[in-house]
């Protein structure tokens, strides 16, 4: 599947995924907006370039494993999976509804391809490290493990228990990606509980650290390739993203962390009945720009 997509294709794909995220949040009437929009470029890079995977064989033994630790941004994973052929795009309409395979927070057994169950923050890096340990030290496999985390969950002690374990065991088949968007539910991370210097912290735990622009798809792909060349250390990307990326009134605004568009009037935001229209119009305009920029 790799190298079939040009950068332009990938940017268009990310934009389509963003539009689907808006649509599924509106249908659901609840869910998280900022994180999924912010991580659309990363998930596009992963599913359409980086990951070794096969949507028709989600249990394929040789696949790379993608663990989503911050389960609440699952709309972006679901949308990316649908675009990658794991299930029909129309199924995104069932997100958060009774009987849906697309649970509010992802559940492994409900949807093939999810790898694990997540939501409660701080446990994804442990699970990814457990998988990577088996791959590197017991079964000696070639597949790689990717673990997407939020910046807020760097406040959880378990994250650092896992960081210590992965560093000790030199898990160079593990690549963690921190969505460094600087927001969490209660505000800006540096107000809630300062995280900096994240780079120095991970380096102290024997990780290789890369600062990555989370909206530069080529850069994300390059970083993933670089990580493959790092031996005897796990790699972490501090992946700088804009929460709510692509929708002007959501960008960098923590109010949109856990809110969907079109549900409530918030001070300083467009009226609720206008939010969805504005969001989709902005994304469609952006799509036009992507197409013309590359031509």
């Amino acid at each position: 599947m790799k190298k079939e997509y040009s950068t332009k294709d990938l940017e268009k794909k990310a934009n389509e995924i963003r539009q689907d995220i808006i649509r599924m949040l509106v249908k659901a009437g609840s869910g998280h907006s900022a994180g999924p929009l912010g991580m659309a470029d990363v998930f596009t890079a992963l599913y359409f370039n980086v990951l070794k995977h096969d949507s028709k064989r989600p249990d394929w033994e040789e696949r790379d494993r993608l663990i989503l630790s911050n389960g609440h941004i699952c709309p972006v994973r679901y949308a990316a999976m649908a675009h990658a052929g794991y299930f029909p795009i129309q199924e995104l309409d069932t997100f958060r509804k009774f009987g849906s395979r697309l649970q509010g927070h992802p559940e492994r057994e409900r949807l093939p391809g999810l790898e694990t169950t997540s939501g409660p923050l701080g446990s994804g890096l442990s699970q990814a490290s457990g998988i990577a340990y088996v791959g590197k030290h017991i079964d000696k496999t070639t597949w790689r493990v990717y673990c997407v985390m939020s910046d807020g969950e760097q406040e959880a002690g378990q994250t650092w228990e896992a960081a210590m374990f992965a560093g000790k065991n030199r898990l160079d088949n593990l690549c963690a990606i921190i969505d460094r968007n600087n927001i969490q539910i209660d505000g800006f991370t540096e107000d809630v509980m300062p995280l900096e210097s994240l780079k120095a912290k991970y380096e102290a735990f024997n990780w290789h650290v890369l600062e990555v622009d989370g909206h530069n798809i080529e850069g994300i792909v390059d970083a993933c390739n670089q990580a493959k060349a790092i031996h005897q250390k796990p790699t972490v990307f501090i992946c700088h993203t804009i929460p709510g990326k692509g929708v002007s009134f959501m960008e960098n605004d923590f109010k949109w962390h856990g809110a969907p568009p079109g549900v409530s009037n918030m001070p300083g935001e467009p009226a609720k009945e206008d939010q969805v229209g504005i969001a989709l119009k902005e994304l469609r305009t952006l799509q036009g720009k992507i197409i013309s920029e590359h031509e």
């Binding site: 701080g122 446990s123 699970q127 457990g130 998988i131 378990q158 374990f165």
Partner: peptide
């Protein structure tokens, strides 16, 4: 795993996902 029971539980979950 050292004194890290929370990590131990989730590491084990990951290892089980990898067939152990």
């Amino acid at each position: 795993v050292g004194v890290a029971e929370q990590n131990m539980a989730s590491l084990a979950a990951g290892m089980a996902l990898a067939g152990k």
